[in-house]
Design a protein around this nucleic acid. Structure first.
Length: 632
RNA sequence: GCUCACGUAGCUCAGUAGGUAGAGCACGUCCUUGGUAAGGACGAGGUCACCGGUUCAAAUCCGGUCGUGAGCUCCA
């Protein structure tokens, strides 16, 4: 069949001359950026390599978008080279919503340089340079990039396997080592925005030189770019670092980097979350404990933290001995378990704790509430016999489900299996992994397997929650541990009178409460559901005449556990409503002369506005019902 | 920790060529008592992150420290 290819296009079979490109086909879609032929994404102007089904890739397809962004990265590199011919190129991939290119420059970029680069890029777009693919031998490739003094490119070429095709893409005077595919010409990239600059190690390795990473995004049209920038702006408005202080929930100060100040409202929110967790766990047989937060170094040596975690701990030296502030609760719980002779009748023993934990996170990694040095977990350790593992894991997964559903978060499970450097008995590992998988299947949970990513002491399930913006957050972790019971020589007396070794299950559902709260702030954009809201009701007297009536209402609300405030400032009602609305308070109870006479409250909800006068205290009972914790 | 950027009142920001600081909101006092998203007047508030240097003079120029941001790295 030499000389002919059999294609299926738009469901219709036809044959074409070999050497034919997708560009040549009369069926070519106007907005096609690249072409898909049986699993391979190709340049439009590259000769079709094989027979197969043809699909057009546009900006609306993930792969099409990747091609578009990748070509944008080349465009960026070309502009940089025009402005700084001595710049050395690293790599420049496409991202989910943009692209970047790493370059090594003699001088750091100045303010205004981004705009300069952007202008140069637009110029190249205007030139509408054709983008051509070139295939090179290894020697040709090395010679070409050596001539251009592209030392990083040489390193890349040296790493390419000997049987692989080496290709480069040329646009005008610019050429870049690249496997492609790319757009047909630079003119397609109509809208460009360079967004930020940062440092990045060459090949992501700390020992390598630091390069300048230039981020940008691009679209086929200005409208799409504008829309994208608006979305980014929306996300910024939800940023918990912005919303938190403006809703008077928490703040950070230079005096304590990595530790939050919880304001009265934020603390209330925090306590509500903790109480929610406490009630769910209490119903499931958990017992809350409080264990020491500073231990002598010997404990950390025994637990293995000293070897693996010392650099991340706050250490104190007093009376010529070293003390460590706890980064985790597990050793404390192990000691507590060990404090008495335990019977099989005590198992499963579920110890929960919310006390403070500290980790000396590297300064550059701190990030609002998401990454702090002082935090609290909804932590628990389950001491179980081997035949209780399944049932307990099942229980924990059930709790995850209830907890996340309460916040409208969906979740996904990642199952991490035995790593190469595992410790302990292989048979036990196999059994545990089989158990876990069975449980996941029984619950009908969708899960991904992360081979060899378990902890060295046992396999684990990590759970990622998906928030209202579709972002994934790794929150819960459930880990089977065979090692700590060994290290602490834990045992219980079994029914047969023999000492047996328990298994520990480490688990946290919300994970760090600080982080969880940060995520909730962004998930709800600060508009918390009634049961969570720190202030559930603001009572707004219209004139001073109604202040005592308002206070009477507040006392009643308070007695039934509804958190409320009376806004008795001498301001107009509209002003108070505006402030309550901006503070995202779920309910406003307006009380004027009419209400006082008729014994009503005029209700305004945060989401629906004015819903009219309601008889009091009927509305109190409605509120009590609506404000219940979603425990079921 | 590393690279780059940034750091002016509680918050958002202005501050032209180096000549001892300004607005809006918030806050306080007074006036106003108004039925569903901003009533008015007056007032208080800053060692311009901190330390040092250059200069007759530094918020402004230079160096260092701390913090924050975007990333990198790390993340039992």
């Amino acid at each position: 069949m030499a000389g002919e290819l059999q294609l299926v296009i738009d469901g219709e079979a036809r044959s074409v001359q070999s050497g034919c490109t997708a560009w040549d086909l009369p069926e070519r879609q106007e907005h096609a950026l690249a072409v898909w032929v049986d699993g391979q994404v190709l340049d439009l102007k590259r000769a079709l390599p094989q027979s197969g089904t043809v699909q057009w890739l546009t900006f609306n397809d993930f792969s099409g978008r990747q091609v578009f962004r990748h070509s944008s990265a080349h465009l960026l590199a070309q502009a940089v080279k025009r402005l700084w011919p001595e710049a050395k190129l690293g790599t420049g991939p496409a991202l989910d919503d943009g692209f970047y290119y790493d370059v090594a420059l003699a001088e750091p970029l100045q303010e205004g340089d981004l705009a300069r680069i952007e202008r140069e890029m637009k110029k190249i777009v205007g030139e509408n340079l054709p983008i051509e693919r070139v295939e090179l031998s290894r020697t040709e490739a090395l010679t070409l990039f050596d001539q251009r003094a592209e030392t990083f490119k040489r390193q890349i070429i040296e790493g390419i396997p000997h049987d692989a095709v080496i290709s480069a893409y040329r646009q005008g005077d610019f050429i870049d080592l690249c496997s492609g595919p790319h757009l047909a010409a630079t003119g397609l990239i109509q809208a460009i925005k360079l967004t930020s600059v940062s440092g990045a190690y060459w090949r992501g390795n700390e020992v390598n030189p630091m390069m300048t990473r230039i981020y940008g995004t691009s679209f086929p049209s200005e409208d799409e770019l504008t829309q994208h920038l608006v979305h980014i702006e929306d996300a910024k408005q939800r940023d918990h670092r912005k919303l938190g202080p403006s809703l008077d929930l928490f703040s950070f100060r230079e005096d304590a980097p990595g530790f939050a100040f919880w304001h009265p409202k934020g603390n209330q929110l925090y306590r509500t979350l903790e109480e929610f967790s406490r009630r769910l766990q209490h119903d499931r047989g958990y017992q809350e404990v409080a264990t020491p937060w500073i231990y002598r170094v010997g404990l950390w040596e025994r637990s293995g933290h000293w070897d693996h975690y010392r650099d991340d701990m706050f250490l104190i030296e007093r009376d010529s001995e070293v003390l460590g502030v706890k980064p985790m609760n597990c050793p404390g719980h192990a000691l507590l378990f060990k404090g008495a002779t335990r019977s099989y009748r005590d198992l499963p023993m579920r110890l929960a704790e919310y006390s403070p934990l500290s980790r000396f996170e590297r300064s550059g990694t701190l990030h609002g509430l998401m990454r702090v040095r002082g935090f609290h977990q909804d932590d628990a350790h389950l001491f179980v016999s081997q035949d209780q593992i399944s049932q307990e894991m099942f229980g924990v997964l059930d709790l995850v489900d209830v907890m996340y559903r309460a916040f409208g978060l969906t979740h996904e499970v990642v199952f991490s299996t035995r790593p190469d450097n595992y410790m302990g008995d292989l048979a036990l590992w196999n059994q545990a992994e089989a158990n876990l998988e069975e449980i996941l299947r029984d619950r009908g949970l969708k899960y991904q397997i992360n081979p060899k990513d378990g902890a060295f002491y046992g396999p684990k399930l990590d759970i990622a929650a998906i928030d209202s913006l579709g972002r994934r957050w790794q929150l819960a972790t459930i880990q089977l541990d065979f090692q700590l019971p060994e290290k602490f020589d834990l045992h219980y007396v079994d029914a047969d009178g023999e000492f047996k070794r328990p298994v520990m299950i480490h688990r946290a559902i919300m994970g760090s409460l600080e982080r969880f709260l940060g995520i909730l702030v962004e998930h709800y954009a600060g508009a918390f559901p009634l049961w969570l809201a720190p202030v559930q009701c603001v009572i707004i007297p219209i004139t001073d005449q109604q202040i005592s009536y308002a206070q009477e209402i507040q006392r009643k609300l308070s007695r039934y556990g509804i958190r409320s405030e009376v806004d008795d400032r001498s301001q107009k009602m509209g002003y108070k409503i505006r402030e309550a609305q901006l503070a995202k308070v779920p309910r406003m109870l307006v009380v004027g002369g009419r209400d006082q006479t008729n014994h009503t409250v005029s209700v305004r909800t945060r989401d629906q506005g004015d819903i009219g006068a309601k008889p009091w205290p009927d509305y109190l009972h409605q509120l009590i019902e609506e404000a219940e914790m979603p425990l079921a």
